[in-house]
Simulated assay, not measured.
Amino acid sequence: MRPIIPCTAPRASKVLFPHLRQPQRPASTVSARVQQMTTTASRHPPSDSQRSAIQKFAESNELRFRNEALLVDALTHSSYASPHTPLDIENKRLAFLGLKVLPLYVTEHIRTQFPDLPADAMESVMKAFTGPDVLKQIGTKVGIPSAVRVKEQALGSSTPASISGRMLISLIGAIYQDQGPQAARQFVEKHVLSRSVDVSIHRKMLYPRTLLDTIVKESGGARPVAETTKEAGIASATPVYGVTLKLGEKKIGEGFGNTAKMAETRAIKLALRTHYHAQLHKTTLPSQIDEEGITFFPA
């Protein structure tokens, strides 16, 4: 008879739910450990005027950092990196964290508020909350341009507002690291999830070809034309197609994909979000939908 060997593997609950194994580490402990690190704020300390601007920014947004160096790091652009050690910028690490935190809370919100929303529509709503232009608007609204530390040569002809979206993501990462998930969630709820998003539009976007076809027919306007602009690796397992959607000579959409149809669909979606955005609210999809039978490539 074979001897019975006792199982030494950890219990499933401890593997699947690590928070049951040990209490969550207090945010102050995390902050204390970070404080021991050499941060961008210590290598490139802010001037008196910069420090004053950051303090005003924190007060106006009711931000109370245990480790103020993290706030400085979040608002310090990568142009402050040393030419000898270009990876020494803490802002990028905070942005990495923010890019994980922000989608988590937004996805949770969408799933809770709209439980019957299809996955493709959820992705579209996610972009409405966290798209680059949206985050830039939010970052500007909370006052990031007046507090951000960025070297002029890095901006070129742009303004600090142009980088507000990226700095906002770093700020969210800094709040999470300094104060924990609850504070980060509250900031996201206040500034990101408080925006009004018409979910009905994103339901319609599940049928982009039908939607654009309907808009064109109802308006009596010219029909956009799709043309293939790129074909690469056609004989390989991962071909890439590029499709441009034009209205006359004007490019109103562009998309890429593993098939020409996929690229065309993405170009149509971009055109709907930009060129035809005003018509989306008042357009009703027909009762009979033939999404697969509609194309904007010339016959």
Results as ranks from 00 to 15, higher is better:
50 Q>Y: 01
144 I>W: 00
57 F>M: 08
118 P>G: 14
114 F>G: 02
74 A>Y: 02
144 I>F: 01
148 V>L: 08
137 Q>S: 14
35 Q>S: 09
135 L>Q: 13
92 K>L: 15
139 G>C: 03
106 V>D: 10
146 S>G: 03
94 L>C: 06
37 M>E: 11
55 Q>K: 07
83 P>D: 13
136 K>L: 07
52 S>P: 00
137 Q>F: 00
133 D>S: 06
104 L>C: 10
96 F>C: 15
70 L>C: 08
55 Q>H: 07
120 D>A: 15
111 R>N: 12
70 L>K: 04
64 R>K: 13
134 V>H: 06
79 S>L: 12
149 R>V: 03
71 L>W: 05
141 K>F: 03
73 D>R: 02
91 N>Q: 14
145 P>T: 09
47 S>A: 07
59 E>R: 09
148 V>S: 05
54 I>D: 03
83 P>K: 13
52 S>G: 04
100 K>I: 08
114 F>A: 07
126 M>I: 03
142 V>K: 01
122 M>H: 06
72 V>F: 10
120 D>M: 15
53 A>I: 00
97 L>N: 14
74 A>P: 03
71 L>E: 07
81 A>T: 08
143 G>M: 09
43 R>C: 10
115 P>R: 05
59 E>C: 02
55 Q>T: 12
51 R>Y: 02
130 T>P: 00
146 S>C: 00
75 L>T: 07
39 T>Q: 09
142 V>T: 02
146 S>M: 12
55 Q>D: 14
104 L>Y: 15
128 A>Y: 01
57 F>P: 01
151 K>Q: 14
143 G>A: 07
51 R>I: 00
40 T>K: 03
110 I>W: 03
110 I>H: 04
108 E>H: 10
129 F>G: 06
121 A>Y: 01
125 V>H: 04
42 S>D: 09
82 S>R: 11
80 Y>L: 09
115 P>N: 09
89 I>T: 13
